[in-house]
Amino acid sequence: MSEIAIVVIEDEREVRDAVVRDLAPFAGHFRIEATEDVDDARNLLAELAADDVLAGLILCDHLLPGVLGIDFLIELEAEPKTRGARKVLLTGQAGLEDTIRAVNEAKLDYYVAKPWSPESLHQVVSSQLTEFVLASDEDVLPYVSILDGPRLLDAASQRGWEGRAT
């Protein structure tokens, strides 16, 4: 089974620290990687790919140094290795136009507005990762306790039945 990573891209240290800490509950099951800019994020994604780690969720700030978050997400959508990753924009500043572009072109999965509440962030991350795990060929059982358990089990039994039928 491949390890799954949550990648955070946020240039402000205080915000990055807070996001990472809010993601701590997922730390036992997912590798949590924080980057401060797009260049570092690219390096990281390359490292992950080299280590056979799947990028499961990309949580990206919108206003990044020299580039907009959605432009980076659009770039990732064009990459086969990151196309399957769930993409969430974390921002206080994306306008309606940018958001529409993100949804249409970057296949943005969710939009988290700053300031966020930890509960809502957990909920978003959990449901997005559930989708990612279901879409992948990975074994769902290890994630039942941390993600959307009922959905994962439901899917697992579905697969089981299918497996039995064949």
Binding site: R13, E33, A34, T35, E36, N43, E47
Partner: peptide, 9 residues
């Protein structure tokens, strides 16, 4: 003083 995310990694 903070170190960069790359350095930390």
């Amino acid at each position: 003083p903070p170190i960069s995310t790359a350095e930390e990694r």
